[in-house]
């Protein structure tokens, strides 16, 4: 009895499954094409892994508006702060790879935490779609100091051990320690909670030099750039050397947009095109170029690949050198 029921169920199930397969076979090519053309067919979320009010979030708001026009769907900026970007990066790494969740963050947030902390993602957890600008990371001081250039600073620091520098996170601390090690200089790292704390410390003379993620550009001649942490010299301070010229290492400087690694190629291609067009938007260009004084430079996914590989090897070198 039971067997008979089972058999009939199987038969019925088999029959309907076969019908469904047939139907799908007939419709699938057209169906699939429609799905591709339809992306995006619902609002897209742009995750910013930092607190509201910072330069990344501000940039994201303006950029999202431009991107919305390109995609024809609302782009929602969602802030998921925590762990120096690690919380937001985890969220996006685990999101559905359908192109509806992207992350807008500093490249370092995707490369550095996996090397130093237990997080559930790595640089390979993402498809790196594009970089739209570069943070202007610099070693800065105030103009009243006896050293005006990077070589003068190193000479001064050798003669005056125990100088104080302000860092803003583990990554910037490691870099300054790395320089100290290379040059045989001893200096003390003073941790600060971002630019809001670093600026008064530096202007108030509590620290001698500081790492800046770009905030110094608001202060004109009240702050003085000694060196660039970026792979190249900074546009606003072309005379200051980059650390890459001297030590062959640079800090990741790109503001990147990534999606989960299994996102289909066609979706990534649509997205990349929209991102590129959006970066030409007037309001976005004005914000980046004139307000933040960051370069408005678009780097696509192919060009980004070797840069990511560079970042990973660069950071590994720094980590190994400063660990022991």
């Amino acid at each position: 009895m039971l067997d008979r029921i089972r058999a009939s169920v199987r038969r019925a199930g088999g029959r309907s499954a076969a019908a469904a397969t047939l139907l799908a076979a007939a419709l699938l090519p057209g169906f699939q094409g429609a799905a591709v053309a339809a992306y995006p067919e619902k609002p897209v979320t742009l995750v910013v892994p930092y607190k509201a009010g910072g330069s990344t979030e501000t940039m994201a708001r303006v950029y999202a508006k431009a991107l919305q026009e390109q995609l024809g769907q609302p782009v929602i900026v969602s802030t998921r702060p925590g762990g120096g970007g690690a919380v937001g990066a985890t969220v996006v790494a685990k999101a559905a790879p359908d192109g509806y969740t992207m992350l807008f963050a500093a490249a370092s947030a995707l490369v550095w935490p996996p090397m130093t902390q237990k997080v559930e993602y790595g640089p390979d957890s993402f498809r790196w779609v594009a970089s739209i600008t570069e943070y202007q990371q610099a070693l800065i001081t105030t103009p009243d100091k006896p050293y005006k250039t990077y070589p003068e600073l190193i000479a001064y620091a050798k003669a005056h051990p125990g100088m104080n520098f302000a860092d803003q996170n583990a990554l910037s601390r490691s870099f300054i320690k790395y320089i100290g090690k290379k040059e045989g200089v001893t200096w003390t790292a003073i941790p600060t909670k971002g630019g809001g704390e670093m600026v008064p410390f530096l202007l108030g003379g509590k620290v001698d030099i500081a790492w800046s993620g770009g905030v110094h550009q608001k202060f004109g001649d009240k702050m003085h750039v000694l060196a660039s942490f970026n792979p190249k010299r900074l546009g606003q301070s072309p005379d200051a050397p980059s650390l890459k010229e001297i030590y062959g290492i640079a800090m990741p400087s790109y503001a990147v947009i990534v999606v989960p690694k299994d996102t289909p190629d066609d979706v990534v291609a649509t997205l990349e095109k929209a991102l590129k067009e959006a970066s030409k938007d007037k309001a976005f260009d004005d914000m980046v170029t004139n307000k933040l004084k960051f370069p408005n430079q678009f780097i696509g996914s192919e060009e980004l690949k070797p840069l990511v590989a560079d970042m990973v090897t660069g950071l590994k070198t720094v980590l190994e050198e400063t660990r022991n």
Binding site: K51, G53, R61, G196, F219
Partner: peptide, 20 residues
């Protein structure tokens, strides 16, 4: 000084920037 006094002020800085 261009630095936020607290979280609300940090949000205000963002708003200032958006408005040029």
């Amino acid at each position: 000084l261009g630095i936020p006094g607290n979280i609300a002020a940090a949000l205000m800085i963002g708003a200032f920037m958006v408005h040029g």
